[in-house]
Design a binder for these strands. Structure first.
Lengths: 331, 331
DNA sequence: ATGAAAGCGCTAACAT
DNA sequence: ATGTTAGCGCTTTCAT
């Protein structure tokens, strides 16, 4: 029994006699033998590894995506390299190049690079982009534009007329989409959209815009993501502005946290786990017909909780609640 | 200029003429050439990859650890495979074996396997264990025993006498440590420790014990982690029991979330990022002298926030607050 | 159905 | 300081 038979037993079992096969398997079992995938990759060109590059592992938006992608990859006997760019476009590029040789493809989540750079990199290694749409590249996006529209319609329906948008970081496709959709949705007589940003997509980013929001006189805010929304609520709280009594806040993402804060956050739910799975599937399907540059657009939905309220029950906007209309008794 | 010179330029630059070296580097730059690390690993035996196995990526305890480990690994030009066991010991074993050949070592975070299995696996691939102490194996642990003691002393200092412990999952070393320390700390005249569990280390796990906690008559609870503590607060809330007025709750971990819930959670802060870094350093130092099985024990500290209060200001324990002593006026 | 041999991209002796 | 050679563990023709 010789080495190539062993190889066939693992990579093309049907080519080997049933009996020999089981003999090989028995030996392997006993010796704890497993084919070395790196060596195999050297000749087959397939590493069975996937790179997953995210902007910030600790941002609660990503872990569900990473978890789902990892599970899906493993279902197809692939493993996942995870890397964190710290929201830095330079690191991002370097990371793709560094991983290129040891993976079959890279999942680029919420990239901050330029389109042209991404296109260039996609010539060096198969790329699937998540949360961004680039002509000619396979992508998985979540329909945040629709989500932003729903959020704005919700706020308008509640009577709000002056609405603020706390935009996301520079280079974020998602932020641009939200901005575009928000402008469209708010457009109308007597309505106004105030845009602040760019902001860091974090709690601190939200804290930092509280001041501008207060001054803007907006009675409602759509934030780039839940983390910012939560920071913003904190910031407004310390300024004596109550949510939702004085101002309504809507987030985006529906991270686990948003069900647990007080008030519970009204938000646009994005299907992050589904996105992770879809991205992996897309990458693994790359080989089958590589010219098809698919685009998967996942639906979002508005989850109404406690951080939004009708304008009528509110004070006169983001100014501290010392106006006549706010003569409430403590309850 | 020949192939081995190119190789040397990258792996032993000092052995090649300065001029030739820069010529090689220039060419490489122009062609976008990078040494294939898988091929290199085949001969050197070093993959420059590290496996990181966690119980649940989506559990907010892990992302800061993963992020720190990834950053530290990259600082040493290593990459990280991340895998998720879903709290399943079987998956855990399979994962270690599957990764063994393509990494220089594996970081096993909060493993649920038996000690003997872990010892066996450590003979197949260098292992560093996080959040668990196994004689003879390099480990990074956080001193949760000390943390649990601090938490209990805090509660006792507040006048609590009947204290509950909401234990963690079966197989968790951390849970055992906490239990041991809690029993020691609570021991004393007129004091009693009520233990419930094992429980899932999640919000749902906390929700699920709310009932037992209520019936236990405890006036304070130490939970296995913040997630459980938060779930427990929710569960108690729906039963009309207020935290901290009716019952005090302490969590463990100090995840980001615990600063953002209402009430803000009193908790034991565990240095997860430091643990991630330390574990990577330990693994990379493995080669230097492999017999040294170090143990790093990181300090924890108590962070007092709003979920704990003196017994005197509380109702008569976990029973609904309809006792005479709770005749408070709304404020 | 199995064996023999070449070669994936690289490094590490060993020459020169 | 550079070239030559063998071989890491595997897969894949090509023979048999």
């Amino acid at each position: 029994m010789h080495i190539s038979t062993v190889s066939r037993t693992f990579s093309a079992p049907h080519l080997v006699n049933v009996e020999t096969r089981s003999r090989v398997l028995a030996c392997a079992e006993q010796l704890g033998y497993r084919p070395n995938r790196a060596a195999r990759a050297l000749i087959t060109g397939r590493t069975c590894n996937i790179g997953l590059i995210v902007a910030d592992i600790a941002n609660p938006f990503f872990p569900p995506l990473i978890k789902a992608a990892e599970a899906q990859a493993r279902r197809h006997d692939n493993h996942i390299f995870v890397a964190d760019t710290n929201e830095d476009a330079i690191v991002e590029e370097e990371l793709v190049r560094a991983l290129a040789k040891q993976v079959d493809g890279v999942l680029l989540c919420s990239p901050r690079m330029s389109n042209s750079l991404i296109e260039q990199l996609s010539r060096e290694v198969p790329l699937v982009v998540v949360n961004r749409q680039i002509t000619g590249l396979p992508a998985v996006v979540m329909d945040v534009a629709q989500g932003a529209r729903l959020a704005m319609e919700h706020l308008i329906g509640l009577g709000h007329r002056r609405i603020a948008l706390a935009a996301g970081p520079r280079g974020s496709w998602t932020s641009k989409e939200i901005r575009r959709a928000a402008m469209l949705a708010v457009r109308g007589p007597g309505r106004e959209l105030v845009i602040t940003g760019p902001n860091a997509p974090t709690e601190n980013g939200g804290l930092a815009v509280a001041d501008q929001i207060q001054k803007s006189g907006a009675t409602a805010v759509l934030a780039y993501n839940d983390l910012m929304a939560i920071g913003l609520i904190e910031g407004l709280h310390t300024r004596g502005i109550r949510v939702p009594q004085d101002i309504s806040i809507v987030g985006i993402d529906d991270i686990t946290l948003s069900r647990l804060t007080r008030p519970k956050l009204t938000t646009v739910a994005t299907p992050t786990a589904a996105a992770g799975r879809a991205a992996v599937d897309m990458l693994l399907a790359y080989g089958d017909d590589r010219r098809t540059t698919a685009l998967i657009n996942l639906q979002t939905e508005l989850v109404i909780r406690d951080s939004t309220a009708p304008l009528s029950s509110q004070g006169s906007g983001a100014a501290p609640a010392v106006t006549p209309s706010t003569t409430e008794t403590p309850s």
